[in-house]
Simulated scan of single mutants.
Amino acid sequence: MKSLPLILVAGLAVTACQTAPVANAGFLSRYDGLVTREDTIRASIRQRRDDAEAAKVETVFLEPSVLVGEASAGLSEAEKAQVLREVDRQICYEVSERFTLADAPAGSARLRTAVVGIRPTGGAAGGVSAVANAFIPGPGTFRVPGTTGGLAVESELLSQSGSQIAALAWARNANVVGTDTPSLSRIGDALQLAEPLGDTVGDTISQHDRPVRDIADPDPCAAYGPRTQPAGFVARMVTGLYVPQINTGTAAEKPKE
């Protein structure tokens, strides 16, 4: 049994690599000018931003995210809604730290987002991974090869006139070796990856010198629940699994469109 960690590390370490880009989904109003970032380790990121126009933006209206194409093939209506809600939640958190969120699109820039790909998590293997991790020392997690899920999204910031200010084509698969926690849910990885997606959306639409601001009171994202989920952290520490119902605050009502 002592040799198990070494075998897993040796066999799985070679599989941790950057996610390949996905094809354009046709959601963005334009794709010309997207530049592939070469400094990313795990995600595929193509983005563009007009800094001069981004600097003029003070208020942003967040359109509810949508599913495009075959992104949701094989998922239940509840699973689709949960992925969209988590994408909206994480984007709301990040954008609200940089801009004032508007209640209506009139007079504001608009951020529109589409989930263009969901790679299901191999739920049955989540338990196997959790057990294996109990025998492997160190802070990282190890996953069964071929069972990790993923998420792909396109998002763009439009001016009041409808011209594109910034755009992002983002994709990432959970790594076999890394910090992506196994889950029994087939959307477990997609839900976890919504957080780094939200970070990238916020960075993409903000010019580099835009300061991060304090969260407004009341919190404009309060409908999604608290920004931190300590119960989810505890659950992962105890079970070794990512539990969507705890980590995403799904007890909170989804905001009305």
Rank of each mutant, 00 (worst) to 15 (best):
K2F: 10
S3H: 14
P5L: 13
P5D: 11
L6C: 02
A10T: 15
A10Y: 12
T15V: 07
C17D: 14
C17H: 14
C17K: 12
A20R: 11
P21H: 08
P21M: 03
L28N: 00
D32P: 07
G33E: 14
G33I: 13
V35R: 14
T36A: 15
T36M: 13
D39T: 11
I41M: 09
A43F: 00
I45H: 02
R46Y: 11
R46Q: 15
Q47V: 09
R49Y: 09
A54P: 01
G69Q: 03
A73K: 15
L75E: 04
L75N: 07
S76Q: 11
S76C: 05
E79F: 01
A81G: 14
V83I: 14
V83N: 00
R89T: 15
R89D: 07
Q90H: 13
C92R: 00
Y93T: 09
E94H: 10
S96R: 00
F99T: 01
F99V: 06
L101T: 04
L101Q: 09
A102R: 10
A102H: 04
A102L: 09
A106H: 11
S108K: 01
S108G: 05
R112E: 07
T113N: 06
A114I: 08
G117F: 01
G117I: 04
G117R: 03
I118H: 02
T121L: 00
T121W: 00
G123P: 08
A124R: 15
P137C: 04
G138D: 15
G140Q: 12
F142P: 00
R143V: 02
P145S: 10
L151T: 03
L158K: 08
S159W: 07
Q160A: 14
Q160D: 07
I165S: 04
A166W: 01
A169V: 14
R172C: 06
N175L: 13
V177F: 07
T179Q: 12
D180Y: 00
T181C: 03
P182K: 01
S183W: 01
L184V: 13
R186P: 05
D189W: 03
A190D: 04
Q192C: 04
L193E: 02
E195L: 08
P196S: 07
L197M: 08
D199G: 10
T200Y: 01
G202N: 08
S206W: 01
D209Y: 10
V212C: 06
R213Y: 06
D214V: 12
D214F: 10
A216T: 12
A222W: 08
A222P: 07
G225W: 06
G225P: 01
R227N: 09
T228Y: 03
P230A: 09
P230C: 08
G232C: 15
M237G: 12
T239M: 06
V243D: 03
P244T: 11
P244S: 09
Q245W: 12
I246N: 01
I246L: 15
N247Y: 02
N247H: 14
G249D: 04
A251W: 07
A252M: 11
